[in-house]
Design a protein around this nucleic acid. Structure first.
Lengths: 236, 236
DNA sequence: CGACGATTTGAATAGGATCAATGGGAGTGG
DNA sequence: CCACTCCCATTGATCCTATTCAAATCGTCG
């Protein structure tokens, strides 16, 4: 059952770096085979180990990528509009390495893997865009991996706060974009430990009030955090 | 100063998945601009933060990828013949995220980034091969990241031993491919902790003698390790 | 108001890191 | 061939970090 895309959604998707240079023909073929669907919060969209049937695009809302093993679970990343996820699995026609669930009510574009691979074969420009997108994703994970292997928990939190601050205009007033439980998991710590890490940062001008954090001494926090563009910069 | 490639080396490189489908013209253009050079052990080839001037191919020997931050250092991966490294940085014309040094005397093919990007632009088949290669690298890092976030140090070691055993024919006799110091760093632990982890595994049939490890109770070790194809399988 | 979930705090424990000291080859030079 | 040295690995002791379990608090939503 194909749910027609609203005309108003198409431009956003078309504007994605990934699709910008795709030929009209391939793009509309892909779109016609696709599903645009709205999901409530906390729906598990895919489960790691499943064959990659669709490429997902987050048009609205937010999706959490996570992984499970043994009894444990860990947040691997968050995808916001307009971003894609599990592109690599789709291209390799392999199983998903990560699971995904909606964090909020979300509108997702689901493009059948087969169509993505066909467009990839037929459309040279699309293939090149995919390279750039993949290279970016790859470098992001490498950065996260470095973050985890080279920094302590407190340092990870400090750098994350500095990043949020920069993202939000650098006013020193940061709104945490996710629940603390989720942030803890992203930073590879327990909620309890995150809470304690915030306390550890208090002497460095970090004041927490619910989901709001005020950074009153950025210099001092940076001295502790030692931010590193080769880990923290989202671009490059 | 271009050092001519030995004719005997070319086929190996040509046979790389990455280059298999490149047109002869693009391939020979790239090769003519390239350097094939032999380095002694422990030479730092590239340093994170440097602009990506070359794509590297390990023709012979072994190269360690590592990262530094603050005072710490961590091994991010090993590249053996015939494999490439830092492809993503080259394609994005960005700086390297990782440093690299030779572990042994090694022969490396260095292809100027500019030539790689030109071939990527001109040769459609090459662009597609790169996608597959990048997608594979990407998935590998995701697996490593899962390994680190979802497993304890002892579990990581147990699974790594099982992998080495499988790689080496599954006889139960494993030859450690790197020094313990390096293995410790790959597994995100200190050498001391690795040593203790080996002791912890003794009751599970792990007998260490220098660089040789005998696994005398694979079943028991697997019960502890809970190997997971979505983390441990090199393929897929 | 009451219930539920999320967060925080406390106490105890476990896991890992650090520092220090000892053993054990591999390679060097006598 | 042996003594010496150096580096790596191991072991012990201790410290620090992070996890676990438990309980209290807070806020939100019916």
């Amino acid at each position: 059952m194909v749910i027609a895309m609203r005309p108003s959604d198409l431009p956003e998707v078309r504007a994605l770096d990934l699709f910008k240079s795709v030929g009209d023909e391939q793009f509309s073929t892909m779109m016609q085979a696709s599903y645009l669907q709205t999901f409530p919060a906390q729906v598990e969209l895919i489960s790691e180990g499943d064959p990659a049937d669709f490429l997902y695009i987050v048009v609205e809302g937010c999706v959490e990528l996570f992984a499970r093993a043994n009894g444990r679970e860990s947040t691997m990343g968050m995808v916001r509009p307009v971003g894609s996820f599990i592109l690599a699995a789709v291209l390799k026609d392999a199983v998903y390495l990560m699971s995904a669930r909606t964090c909020q009510r979300s509108r997702l574009l689901m493009i059948p893997s087969q169509n993505v691979r066909e467009a990839f074969e037929r459309d040279e420009a699309f293939a090149r865009s995919i390279v750039v997108e993949l290279a970016s994703c790859y470098r992001s994970v490498v950065k996260e991996h470095k973050d985890l292997k080279l920094r302590s928990a407190v340092e990870r939190l400090a750098n994350r706060l500095l990043r949020y601050n920069a993202d939000q205009g650098g006013s020193g007033r940061v709104e945490l974009p996710y629940g603390k439980r989720t942030i803890a998991s992203m930073l590879a710590m327990t909620p309890e430990n995150l809470s304690r890490a915030f306390n550890t940062l208090k002497p460095y001008g970090v004041e927490v009030d619910g989901a709001t954090v005020r950074l009153t001494d950025i210099t001092s926090l940076e001295t502790l955090a030692k931010p590193n563009p080769l880990i923290d910069d989202r671009k490059t």
